[in-house]
């Protein structure tokens, strides 16, 4: 199951009335939104949305019913177990040869402030300002020890850029920690604190 689908499941299951609606679905052969709403004292729209969302996820089947009134749907359970199974490794950003060979350096006039650790050759946080006047905002990024070390060895603005792999090596950071370094690179690039070497840009 991918993360987004799991999040939808979790969101539905976290509703206060979720267990009560599932109790109706388990004990009734099929139920309509108005029946469920009347039984649980919910607004019909609330019950309708919930059941519809479950149907979209494939947990319920729905059948259109035509009686004297205008048509409506009957919902029935399609499965009696809900299993949320997420492989977290699928969201791990594995360093690729391309991402590690990215040549980077600090960007000139980036409006970032770096806090240096008192006891170690490392940077503890980066504070970035963005916007003008009343819109001016401050964002503080606390760094992990490897990230702080990496930033300490990042080439200065207007100097020869180095590849991410070279900086990792220079800073003496274990290669297995590359994903968190790449995450920082991505973040700081977004905030215009670092830049890629011009020749490496697409």
């Amino acid at each position: 199951m991918d993360f987004r689908t799991a999040a939808k499941y979790a969101s539905l299951l976290s509703k206060d009335y979720a267990e009560d609606i599932f109790a109706l679905l388990v004990n009734y052969q099929a139920i309509s939104a108005s029946e469920a709403a009347a039984r649980l004292n919910l607004h019909i729209k609330t019950a309708q949305d919930f059941l519809e969302s479950l149907a979209q996820l494939g947990i319920l089947s729905k059948e259109e019913v035509f009686e004297k009134k205008r048509p409506y749907y009957h919902y029935a359970l399609r499965q009696t177990r809900i299993v949320i199974d997420i492989d977290l490794m699928q969201i791990k950003r594995e360093p690729t040869l391309n991402s590690l060979s990215l040549k980077i350096r600090e960007k000139q006039n980036n409006e970032a402030r770096f806090a240096v650790a008192r006891n170690d050759d490392t940077i503890t946080s980066v504070t970035i300002w963005s916007g003008e006047g009343r819109e001016r905002q401050e964002r503080k990024i606390k760094l992990t020890a490897p990230q702080g070390k990496f930033l300490y060895y990042l080439p200065f603005p207007k100097t020869t850029p180095l590849s991410v792999a070279d900086i990792i090596q220079k800073a003496g950071i274990d290669e297995s920690l590359a994903p968190e370094i790449l995450d920082l690179v991505q973040l700081l690039e977004k905030y215009d604190v670092i830049e890629q070497a011009p020749e490496m840009r697409d």
């Binding site: 600090e106 970032a112 770096f114 240096v116 050759d121 930033l151 300490y152 990042l154 200065f156 207007k158």
Partner: peptide, 11 residues
């Protein structure tokens, strides 16, 4: 000449 100031330390 080239500026390139940063508040980071330089090893």
């Amino acid at each position: 000449i080239g500026n390139g100031y940063t508040s980071r330390p330089r090893p």
